[in-house]
């Protein structure tokens, strides 16, 4: 029989390993580290169509992640989507004429918001609004437009 003391130590080690593993899963594997704290400021942007954008989608500038989407809502009067972004405190020099576009990472990847900085001297502050936005590219629409223009070409050819 294993001595009680050794047993206690090994059980302690086992419990510790289990909790470390849980902590690792929470911090390193999941998005808890990104969720942690409201350390950042909020900006809103209006889009005609956000495609597959979701809450917690990343917000990037020049490909670097600077924040994430915290809320998506719908404006009943203008029929636009209102997207609230949370940008990390350290990125506090984003010009107020910045262009927000919805991109897709790869052909099948997730959608994210890319910010293209403008040339203004004024910076966006907490509660600020980005007025220049470009909607998501919806694949069906693009294909639809493409087919439509082809059909028109074909029709004019036939005449």
């Amino acid at each position: 029989m294993v001595q009680m003391r050794t047993m206690e130590i090994m059980v302690g080690g086992f419990m510790a390993a289990g909790f470390v593993a849980l902590f690792f899963l929470a911090m390193q594997v999941s998005n808890l580290s990104n969720l942690a704290g409201g350390d950042g400021y909020q900006i809103t942007a209006r889009f005609d169509n956000i495609g597959g954008l979701k809450v917690r989608s990343p917000v990037t500038m020049a490909g670097v992640r600077v924040g994430r989407v915290t809320e998506i809502s719908f404006d009943n009067t203008t029929y636009e989507a209102i997207v609230t972004l949370q940008v990390d405190r350290s990125y506090n020099t984003i010009p107020d004429d910045t262009f927000a576009k919805i991109y897709t990472a790869g052909l099948l990847g997730e959608q994210y918001i890319g910010l293209d900085p403008g040339g203004s001297e004024e910076y966006l502050a907490d509660g600020g609004t980005i007025s220049l936005t470009q909607s998501a590219l919806v694949l069906e629409e693009i294909i639809g437009q493409f087919l439509f223009s082809k059909a028109e070409e074909g029709g004019s050819d036939g005449e």
Binding site: L22, L25, V29, S30, N31, S33, R56
Partner: peptide, 18 residues
């Protein structure tokens, strides 16, 4: 790591697994 962190949700994935 970053794709993992972006997609794995603490509540939906980790809690449910536990």
């Amino acid at each position: 790591w970053s794709q993992m962190q972006a997609k794995i949700d603490l509540h939906e994935d980790i809690y449910n697994g536990v």
